[in-house]
Amino acid sequence: MKNIIDFFKSFLLLELLKGMSVTGKYFFARHITVEYPEEKTPQSFRFRGLHAQRRYPNGEERCIGCKLCEAVCPALAIKIEVAERADGSRRTTQYDIDLVKCIFCGFCEESCPVDAIVETRVYEYHGENRGDLYYTKAMLLANGDKHEAQIAKDRAADAKYR
């Protein structure tokens, strides 16, 4: 009996039609894939991408070298050295993030008492050489300067939840 049913199924191309109907359904359904890089997914204002160091509007760097981010970093990706600046304030002389180690958990951002270290929406960056992804203070500050408008907007949007 089973053999007879199988014979008719294959003779009438039933399986083929079944498969084609699935294909046909998706052919007319709404697309859900994103055509990266032409298209991009929407981002949360809490998106955790490339790090940046922020400044105050008067140009003064925010970071005071409290090292809370260094202490909290689970991947030990942050390295900070601090010294007293000529004006007596506490400032970093070195602030490095090794993005190869970083796991983008956002703890650094969360622990920062002055919103100095932030994670931006930028995720399109790469390194071609060993060490390219070792971000120094100058690079992080440059990131901050470049994206400050977006960063400020995102902090403002997040403020009411904090």
């Binding site: 070298g65 409290c66 090292k67 202490a71 601090v82 010294a83 007293e84 506490r90």
Partner: peptide
């Protein structure tokens, strides 16, 4: 010792 290190380091 001012600003030389944090205690946990």
């Amino acid at each position: 010792f001012r600003y030389k290190a944090r205690s946990w380091e």
